[in-house]
Design a protein around this nucleic acid. Structure first.
Lengths: 121, 121
DNA sequence: TCTTTTATTAGTAATGATTACTATTTAAGT
DNA sequence: ACTTAAATAGTAATCATTACTAATAAAAGA
């Protein structure tokens, strides 16, 4: 509801990053702008932004959340090095209704071995 | 490496359930068979089974892991009530290679409003 | 512009899922 | 049966996230 400086900075960090930052990484970057910003403020705003459809959440295998811009794309996760790679050019069609459930969005998580890990074989 | 009674029970709980149990729910069910089984044993075995490709992990929005059988299917998550519904009949083709990364598996998470929540409107 | 209202914040404490640790047990190979 | 290395039960520790509270500041009204 209120457009605070803290919220603006957190959103811009996510929208200007191509990484998949976790809350603490966002906290560290936000401190460059607001030196005494609180970690609780980061979490509160991340939840606010997510609930208002302004960012995405992706979760890794290790119980930690990562935050991502809303722009439509999917993810490839390397099973070996756990690296997450953005996939933009996947031409998939998902129906608007599945078993009477109305579809609003979808995410595809592709697993495999990334190019670099394959070279190590 | 060792085929313990604990590990067998944990795997069978997951394979015989159509829910998406979390570690504590698996713990409670395992106690019906081994009354003094330890929660640590549950977690250790879940990680073992996951690392050996015998179960899947799905994570909800609330920092808790859920465990699922390996059988191929996808998930619909209701944005309103957070219910997870299995989707078996999705006819999607994902390429074997994406941007030089070799694909071994993929998961599709479909979001939307479930049938029951729609009725409430 | 000044005042009021109410969401938001900083800072800290609490929670809860998961992991680490250790002495003891047990599966599996000899 | 004997040995040994992996696994277990039980407990303590860790760490991501949430809750709490007094102080602050954005938005709305006068």
């Amino acid at each position: 509801m209120k457009n605070t400086k803290q919220r603006q900075i957190i959103l811009s960090i996510i929208n200007n990053s191509n990484e998949h930052l976790d809350a603490y990484e966002i906290y560290e970057r936000a401190k460059e702008n607001i030196k005494n910003i609180s970690l609780g403020t980061i979490y509160r705003n991340l939840n606010y932004l997510y609930n208002n459809n302004m960012i995405n959440i992706i979760s890794d295998k290790k119980d930690k959340m990562h935050y991502d811009k809303k722009e439509k794309h999917h993810h490839f996760i390397c099973q070996r090095c756990q690296k997450i790679i953005d996939i933009h050019d996947l031409n998939i069609k998902i129906p608007k209704t599945i078993a009477n459930n109305s579809v609003t969005d979808y995410k595809i998580i592709i697993e495999g071995i990334c190019e670099e890990c394959q070279k190590e074989d």
